[in-house]
């Protein structure tokens, strides 16, 4: 084989391997985010709505309510909240950083965490004074928690009003540290979830503290009731 032929052959033999290596590398990097999203969507879709017997042995009664997310009637800056019952779907969180609208159940229990976010029944009802603490699984409803940035706007819809918050602080704390989730006099919304950990469940929690920027209590809905 002449030198000319050999010098031609080598690049041609190498080309498929170079191209394959480049393509596989690009695909591997590009697939990280879609894979996480797919996992989150699958987690949400496959949660079995009827897994929890509403009147079963656990004693948990889950109430699925239709939450008003678009309201064109009269509103007021002040009003009264409706305290939900344990296991009741009472709010929906919307935020541009989240890929899904997050249903919020009152009370914290494993069955409820499979259906949405849970609000600790010891915390303040959204719209009232105090610290409203909401948590959810990191592999489903709060998968996009790390996308939240300071000044991001979060809307919480309930059947008595729409409440708008602005992210004021990004937080990270140990699961044993309760300083962010205890009741407070200051009105705020605290959202948190587990920190993503490839090795399993993490002791670390991440979240955001949001300050209220707007309240719109539905006056006509209340009158109708």
């Amino acid at each position: 084989m002449s030198n000319k032929k050999r010098s031609d052959l080598l690049p041609h033999l190498a080309a498929p391997f170079i191209i394959a290596a480049l393509c596989i590398s690009v695909i591997a990097v590009a697939m990280i985010k879609p894979y996480d999203k797919l996992k989150m969507y699958a987690g949400i879709a496959f949660m079995d709505k009827l897994k929890t017997d509403p009147e079963g042995s656990s004693g948990l009664v889950i109430r699925e309510n239709e939450i008003i997310t678009e309201h064109n009637g009269e509103t007021s800056e002040t009003g009264e909240v409706i305290r939900p019952k344990f296991g009741e779907l009472y709010a929906v969180i919307k935020c541009s950083a989240f890929d899904v609208d997050v249903p919020v159940y009152w009370g914290s229990k494993a069955e409820l965490l499979e259906k949405g976010a849970c609000q600790s029944s010891g915390s303040a009802v959204v719209g009232s004074d105090g610290n409203a603490v909401i948590s959810a699984h990191v592999d489903t409803f709060f998968a996009d928690m790390d996308n939240l940035k300071k000044d991001d706007v979060i809307t919480v819809n309930t059947n008595y009003g729409e409440f708008t918050y602005k992210v004021s602080e990004l937080i990270s704390f140990k699961s044993t540290d309760r300083k962010y989730i205890v009741p407070s006099e200051k009105t705020k919304l605290t959202l948190y979830t587990c920190k993503k950990d490839v090795l399993g469940s993490s002791d670390q929690r991440i979240g955001v503290i949001c300050e209220p920027v707007g309240s719109a209590f539905y006056t006509d809905v209340k009158e109708a009731e």
């Binding site: 969507y41 949400i44 879709a45 709505k49 009827l50 609208d101 409803f141």
Partner: peptide, 23 residues
């Protein structure tokens, strides 16, 4: 219950959580 069990592709759950609109 019939509606839930018959939604074999879980379109309802996907729509409810805003996933369907993204897809």
């Amino acid at each position: 219950v019939i509606s839930e069990f018959s939604d074999v592709y879980k379109f309802g759950a996907l729509e409810e959580h805003g996933v369907l609109s993204k897809v």
